[in-house]
Structure formats: C-alpha cells, structure tokens
Design a binder for these strands. Structure first.
Length: 925
RNA sequence: GGGCCUGUAGCUCAGUUGGUUAGAGCGCACCCCUGAUAAGGGUGAGGUCGACUGUUCGACUCAGUCCAGGCCCA
C-alpha cells in the first residue's frame, strides 16, 4: 500500500468509470432531497490553470459532502463556448480575418471549442471531480442557442431592450469595432492643445476688462466638433486668472502653475476660489460651433495633466459616455466607418479625423480659441492587426434598460434575499448593481448567439411579430444558431411574414449577443429544461470573486428580468490562487504552476488537500514548500490508516466486534472522542468550512491516534491472544474509528479514501465505494461514555503528559532508554489517590511503562522538582527481566518452566492461544 | 484614484459576547526506539497578534488613520 498517487490515481479513475460510479451514487440517493450546485461555465481554451482547478475541486467537495450528508446532488458541468477569445484563436489559425465565410468560420470555432471541452473534461476528471461528464451543458448546443436567443426575444417582448449609441474602439483602416482585448498600446505623437470656451453663465462672474473663459486641454482636437460638455471635479478648487489683455480664465487652482510652465502663457491669479461642484449646470460657448455647452461633474477629472476641466464628447470616450448618460447627453459622433466627418463646418467635413486635427487647430486659431499648442508623445491604443491608431466612436448598440419594470430595484431586492457566503458578498453585488449602466448586449462579432432582429428592407422598421420571430428558434434547434448565417431572412421567418408597410423582404441584424448574456441564461436551461433535476432556483452558485461583475450579476439580471427572481439561493465565493509571494500567477511573471504539474509530481489528492487545508474565502497561496508540507501531512494520515488496516487483518466486524457493554472503558472513551470529531466535522461541512475538517482530522490522527491511542494499543494488539476479549475490544474501536475517519476525509482525499475503503473490513450493508457512503452518524460509536468517566480519562491524560516529561528527564540522565525500562512511582495526595487507585490496572499500558506503584505522597517533600499539584512522579529502573515476547520487564520472567523467557501476561496469552488452536484444530499466531 | 476583501509563530490553521503567562499541527533542534520501519515515540526552542493613534481599569479582539497584498472598476 505504497502511496505513489500519480500512478495509482489514473487506475482508480479507470475503475470508477467502468463501474459508472457517478451514476450509481445518484441512483443510491433515489428519493432523497435534491441539492443543486449549478456550475458556472468556464471558457474552453488552453490548459486549465490553478484557479480553474480550485474552482472545480471546491465544487466537487461541496457536491460530495452534500451527497455524504444524504442529499441527491447531481453535478452537471458546463462550458461557455462562444466569444472573442475563440474567434481570435481561430483567426490566428486561419492567418487572417475574413478568410472564410461566416458559416464556415463558425464551424471552425465550434470545432475549436469542442476540442478544448474534451481536453478540459480529461483535466477535470483527473482531479477526481465527479459529474455528468458524458452529458455536460454547452452554450453552443443547438438547444442552448435556441434558448439563449429565446431569452433575448423574451427580454425584447417584455420591453427591456432598446437601441442606443455607445462608444467602442474603432479601427478606421479595418472599418471595424474592436474589443478591449484587440487593442494594444503604443507610443503615438498627438497634438497637445489648450482651448478656451467662453462662459455664458457660471457661479462666479469676475470683473474684467476682456472676456471670461473656461480653459481646457486635449490631445484629440478632432473630438471638439462632438464636444457637448465641460466636466469639473466636484471636490477640486477652481480659480480665475487674468491675462495681459484682461481676459479671465477659469481652471483648477493646482493646475495654474503647471499650465504657465508648460505654455509660457502668463496669467495673474485673482481672488475668486470656488468648488468644482458649483459648476454643475453652468453654460459655455462652443469654440467654433453655434452650440451651448453644459457644465457637468465627473470623478475621473484629475490634476495630473490639463486644466482640471475636461472637454467631454460622449460619442468619443468611455468616461465621456457615462457622464453623458448621467446628464442625458447624446452619444454624438458625426463620423462614418472610415472616420470621415459627415457634418460640421466646411473646414473639416469629409476629412478623416486624423486629417482634421491640423485643420481644426487652424480653425481654433482663426476663431481666437486656441490658447497654446504643442506636441505630446504618449501611449495610445492601436489596432493589433493593422497597427494603426484607433479611435473611440459611438455606434448603435442593443441595451437592456436597467430601469424598465424596476429591473435594478428588483435585482437588488432579490440579491438581498440570497445567502452570500461570506456575507460581504451582499454589499458588493448590491453596490455594483446600484451603479452599473444599462447592459450593452450587442457585439459586432460572429461566434455567438445572433440577436434575432429583422429590419424591413423597405421602410427599415423592426419586425415586432414575436410569434413569427420565435419561428427562428425552431431553426436554431434543428441547425444551431449557424442557421442565422446560412439561411436567408425569408427562410428563417414563416412564409409570408410582412411588415406593416406591406413589404415582405427583411434584413437580418448582424450583431451577436454578449457572451455574458449566454452564461447569464444557463439557469434557464440547466435548472429548468433538464427535467431530471428540475430545481429553480439552484441551491448554490460557487465562483471566484471576479464573478460579482460577471456571472453572479448576469445570471441575477436574467433571472429577475424573466422569472422575477434570483436563480440562486446562496452564493459561495473563494479567493484568488496566488504564488508563494502572494502575487497572481502570470506568464509574464513566469510563476505559473499548472494543476497538471502538481498531479504529475504529487497527485490529485495532494492538490485537493491544498484546497482543503486553507481558508479559501481569502486568497490561496501555492508553493513548493506548501506542497512538501501537505505531502508530509498526507503521509502521516496515510500511515495512520495503514496501521489501523494492518491490525484489522483478522477482524470481521460482524463476527468479531465486541458488544458495546464489553468494550474496554479506554476504547469507549476514544470512540466518544471520535464521535465528537465526526459531529463537529459534519457541522463544518455544512458550512463549507473544509479547512476546519482537515485540520481537526489531521490533529486527531497525529495526536490522538498515532502518538497516543494506537501507540498504546500496540501492546494489546501484538501481545494479547488474537481472539481475546481485550484485543477484540481494541479492534472493534479501531475499526469503527477508521470506518468513520475515512468517510470524513472522503470529500477531499477522494482517491486515498477509496483505497482505504477497499482494504477496510466491511459489514454486509456497507456500500462498495466510500463515495456512496454517508458521513458517520452519532450512533455509530456506541453509547457515549459517561461524562464523569470521560473526565477521569482527561485527568489521566494530564498524568500521562507529566510522566512523559519525567521519563524524558530520566532518558537524558541515561537511567533508561525505552520507556518500558521504567518503573514509575506515583506519590499521590488525596486529590489524585482515588483516581489512580481506581485505574491502577490500566496505568502501565497508559503510561507505557513496565511497572507503576501508587503510594501516598512523601510527607514534607516539597522540593518542587517533580512534585506539584498533589502529584509526585519518580522514575526508577523497572524490576525483573525483560520479557522476550512483550518487552515489558517483570519479576516473573524465568519462573515458567514451559516458557522461561516470558512474563506472566504472555504466559497467560500463550495459554489462550494454545487452547484456541486446540479447539479449532488450527495453529495460533 | 474608487468599491470590496485579506494581513495571528518559517508554513497552514484555531482563538468563544474585549479579561489572567496567545493555542494546534507541520517544519526545525536535541533525544529515544527498531514488531506502522522509504516507519514510530518523547522533549524543546520559535509570535511586540501588519503599523500607528484612540476608546477602555483592561484590546489579537472595538473605532480611526496608514502600510502591504488581492479582486473588480477607472
């Protein structure tokens, strides 16, 4: 029974798979209450990393502990198959974008995802995770795509969905929207200009000879035609400063000096000083257009650069856009796909934005709005494909209105009813929902669920006949969402679907859904449409802290939006997997440790122990040192089991177990303590506090069993007659303890527990796998030991500790070596006397010495060396000779002619053995 | 920069409603055993409880500030 987990575990997996153990575990819980952990779908790319393994192992431990607590707890793993990362991988394999038709491109994406799903399944199984691996859910399943598209239609039908504008990264060269991940930053030289906006109305009106201006700074002159507001920081102080001509400028107090230093413009500061927040609602003149500009407030205004006043173009910046939303400003972006101005002054209309930069500079100069200008080299986003600088451009997108039908308020209310573990999760999700903008659902991509919208070819109106629209879902169910790309609008819609204008030709929407909408909809399918385990809401969602913004939120919004309630009853979150120094693992840092490496070097049970040993609510660290430490802990636990199994070789619980009443009191005491451990562990499993179970079990195995109980039992196990009442009592206790302990560790040490279970003697009712068993129940350990008797043993434990210290002292003085060479004289005062007399017969075994003498305390002996608290301990050499058989010393050794080298206990034991051999006709030990 | 979280011996984890010299296991040092032996047992040394400032008769435990690290945003 050597460990060698990396080799043994795969064999065990093979065996489990052949037996279809997962199915049989569920079958064994037929009729039991359901407990549903709904799996958050990972993204199928690359090899699983430590965080993914942590995720799956925790889920597995929850599912297993619930199963062992008596629930029917199926686990249906899933994958989030659509999305940009796969598209870019496939594009990389193809060599370029747009190399194949959309339908073919999607086929390749599907294939790519399938490939990695299969790799993941192997990886996850290797970790010992049990689940429905032969029927996982995939968001790219035809049925799934139909359900997701259907959910979008339902959102639309309920009136949540609207079309609005939002700025996205846009590449002028490729004429396409770019995702965050497709943008890379590079040095770029931009104009750096200071522009003045004349004040129409502001909270101050300084006396001046000239005019009154607000001063702004920008590196994108071309965004000025779309300038709709000036943003002030509510907490900054703003001042007025006068130039040589008597014009007065408004800017942040802390930016006055830097401005003069950078531009050489001389200004004289005036007395006025005013808080930024007062400028909300102020009004300004656009520098060259006939437009009034609003004063607004924004937290992102900084004092690092510029003037502390930010020109805001909601159509050309992410922050500007949110500010615009807040103040009801349009995401105005008067440029086309090539970046050419579609309206505005002749100076720049028809030019691209980069061509327009110098032209607008000229324009500003002519209008007298340019205060200063220079150049600035800074980090600027570029297209990762063509390496040209990109811009922010507002485009038409689909949104979910957070206020419609009180979605935001209801989501917060429902989140409040969820049990968040740890409970700060509630505050975190609530504050996020409270401040989040409308949900932008659309993506200008191909590999995803299409947004099912048709426009009339004639009048451009949207089709709103939902019965007809739902017809499309049938196509999806048959052919997958690929049908959207492979079939014409007329094929997809029922024959003769007409617009209210009378036309019958339609144009399909090109956008696809945000993948968060896919994953946010998983509960609609997995919790509902898999009839066998119908349970809505799920009992638990379990993911990392990044999912407060991700899956927890998207699932909640879909659940509340369509079902009026949260799809989960409780949410358990864990921390991040970090390296030994507490830094996140990354390729660039070169500190990545992969689960496959751990499995190969240490075994999956060790990786699971890594999870079980730490408080996962905070971040978890991984290091070689920790793995070494866990391996030591594992070996100790394993050897403890091994000793128990080795001593149960001739024990059949149904034939040899001793009745409760006949168990030795010492054994009953240890069983009581095991019962307590089991009881506490069940409570900890219930609260998902796995590390408490691990530490308590480890402590128990090391301290109570290995160093104490089992060590003491060796005498009984090795020297008593095999079938003697005393030895059978010990075996009964050891069997019950091992039987209980193996089930307590089964949720984390899945392979090792099964191995122990295999070698453990069983009763006829025991299941064949430890993973079908239930946690030890209170009544498995016999009647609990009387409290008074338990107290006696706790005192005897104190006695033992003190005797061990005295023995150590004797060892150092070379009086004895092994403890059996000792005789201990206990001088006891009244407090101890009664107890020691009562347990006198048990003392040599308990103290692991050959002889114990209990005597009154020596009067007047108070030197304090070994005597205190009414107990005096004196170590002497044991009397008599060493028994060859049991190694105890006894005066009786040599007195038995039949067995001259043996003590009186062994003489008796040998007699029993001979007698038993005679009765059964077989030999003894 | 903002929201949330974490910070107890070298490592992992306990520390009950604030109350006597802060506990455990591992590791380490030294010793013993050789019938769990690529084992087993014993003894012992390790902590200004992230830092500082308050509240209190008394704070690892309460409050505030800061530092370090993490997640998500900007």
């Amino acid at each position: 029974m050597k460990a060698n987990l990396p080799e043994a575990e795969p064999r065990q997996l093979e065996d489990w798979n052949q037996k279809r153990l997962y199915d049989r575990i569920l079958a064994s819980r037929e009729g039991a209450p359901l407990y549903i952990l709904h799996d958050g779908p990972p993204y199928p790319t690359g090899e699983i990393h430590l965080g993914t393994a942590l995720n799956k192992i925790l889920k597995d431990m929850v599912v297993r502990s619930k199963t062992m607590a008596g629930f029917r707890a199926p686990y249906i793993p899933g994958w989030d198959c659509h999305g940009l990362p796969i598209e870019t991988q496939v594009e990389k394999e193809l060599g370029r974008k747009g190399a194949v038709e959309p339908a073919e491109f999607r086929r390749l994406c599907r294939k790519f995802a399938s490939r990695y799903v299969e790799a993941h399944i192997r990886d996850f199984q290797r970790l010992g995770v049990f689940g429905q691996w032969d029927a996982p859910y995939l968001t790219m399943d035809f049925d799934f795509e139909a359900r997701i598209a259907g959910a979008f239609l339902e959102f639309q039908e309920k009136g949540y969905v609207y079309r609005g504008k939002k700025p996205v990264y846009w590449c002028l060269h490729d004429r396409t929207a770019l995702a965050e991940a497709e943008v890379e930053y590079d040095e770029h030289v931009s104009p750096s200009i200071w522009v003045r906006y004349e004040v129409i109305q502001a909270p101050i009106d300084p006396q001046r000879r000239g005019r009154f201006y607000a001063l702004i700074w920008t590196t994108t002159p071309w965004t000025l035609p779309a300038s709709l507001a000036l943003a002030f920081h509510p907490d900054f102080k703003y001042v007025a400063a006068e130039d040589a001509e008597g014009n007065v400028y408004l800017l942040a107090e802390d930016r006055l000096e830097p401005f003069m230093a950078e531009t050489g413009v001389q200004l004289t500061r005036r007395a006025e000083r005013i808080e930024g927040r007062k400028f909300e609602g102020a009004r300004f003149h656009h520098p060259f257009l006939d437009r009034e500009i609003a004063g607004v407030l924004a937290d992102y205004v900084t004092l690092d650069q510029g003037t502390g006043i930010v020109h805001t173009a909601p159509g050309h910046g992410a922050e500007d856009f949110y500010t615009g939303q807040k103040y009801g400003l349009e995401a105005y972006a008067p440029i086309d796909d090539e970046g050419r101005f579609t309206e505005g002054l002749d100076d720049y209309r028809g030019k691209t934005v980069f061509e327009a930069n110098p032209l607008i500079l000229d324009l500003l100069r002519r209008r007298g709005a340019l205060v200063a200008s220079s150049k600035l080299s800074h980090s600027y986003p570029h297209c990762w494909r063509c390496h040209n600088p990109v811009i922010f451009r507002a485009t038409e997108q689909w949104f979910v209105n957070m206020e419609h039908r009180d979605l935001r308020r209801k989501a917060i209310e429902n989140a409040d009813g969820v049990q968040w573990i740890p409970d700060w999760g509630r505050d975190r999700i609530e504050s996020m929902i409270r401040t989040r903008p409308d949900w932008c659902l659309s993506r200008q991509r191909m590999w995803g669920t299409p947004i099912v919208v048709f426009y009339c070819d004639e009048c451009g109106k949207r089709l709103e006949d939902f019965a007809a629209l739902k017809h499309v879902l049938d196509w999806f169910r048959r052919e997958g969402a690929d049908a959207w790309f492979a079939r014409s609008a007329e094929e997809l819609l029922p024959a003769g679907t007409r617009c209210s204008c009378g036309a019958g030709r339609w144009r399909k929407e090109n956008d696809i859904l945000d993948v968060w909408f896919d994953s946010g909809s998983t509960h609609l399918v997995v919790l509902d449409y898999r009839d066998a385990y119908h349970r809505f809401p799920a009992d638990i969602y379990l993911e990392g802290p990044d999912q407060f913004r991700g899956w927890f939120q998207s699932s909640l919004l879909v659940g509340v939006g369509l079902r009026e309630r949260s799809p989960y009853r409780s949410v358990l979150t864990y921390g991040w997997a970090l390296d030994a120094d507490g830094r996140p693992m990354s390729k660039s840092l070169g500190n990545v440790i992969l689960p496959s490496e751990i499995c190969q070097k240490w075994g999956a049970d060790l990786l699971r122990l890594w999870v079980a040993s730490q408080d996962y609510h905070a971040d978890l660290r991984m290091s070689d040192r920790m793995m070494t430490q866990l391996a030591e802990a594992y070996r100790k636990l394993r050897n403890t089991f091994r000793w128990a199994l080795g001593n149960l070789g001739d024990f059949n619980p149904e034939r040899d177990a001793v009745a409760d009443a006949d168990l030795w009191e010492f054994d009953r005491w240890m069983l009581s303590r095991t019962a307590e451990l089991a009881e506490r562990s069940r409570g900890w499993y219930d609260k998902f506090e796995f590390q408490r179970v691990f530490h308590a079990v480890q402590d128990f195995a090391v301290v109570d069993l290995s160093a104490f109980y089992f060590d003491i039992l060796k005498d009984r196990m090795y020297t008593f007659a095999p079938a003697s009442a005393g030895r059978r009592s010990a075996q009964t206790a050891v069997w019950r303890i091992a039987h209980a302990l193996v089930r307590l560790v089964a949720p984390f040490l899945v392979f090792t527990a099964e191995e122990v279970w295999k070698y453990l003697p069983h009763r006829s009712g025991d299941p064949e796998s430890v993973h079908m068993a239930r946690f030890p129940a209170a009544d498995e350990f016999g009647a609990p030991l009387d409290e008074r008797l338990g107290a006696n043993w706790n005192r005897l434990l104190v006695l033992r500790e003190r005797v061990l210290r005295a023995l150590e002292a004797a060892r150092n003085e070379k009086l004895i070596a092994g403890s059996l060479e000792a005789k201990v004289r206990l001088g006891a005062s009244d407090g101890w006397r009664e107890l020691l007399e009562a347990y006198r017969a048990s003392l040599p075994a308990l103290l692991q010495v050959s002889q114990v003498e209990v005597a009154p305390m020596r009067p007047g002996d108070g030197d304090g060396s070994a005597a205190h608290d009414g107990l005096e301990i004196e170590v002497q050499r044991a009397e008599g000779a060493k028994c060859e058989r049991c190694w105890n010393y006894s005066l009786a050794v040599g007195t038995f002619t039949e067995y001259p080298t043996v003590c009186e206990r062994c003489f008796a034991a040998l007699g029993e053995i001979v007698q038993a051999a005679g009765e059964s006709g077989k030999s003894g030990r």
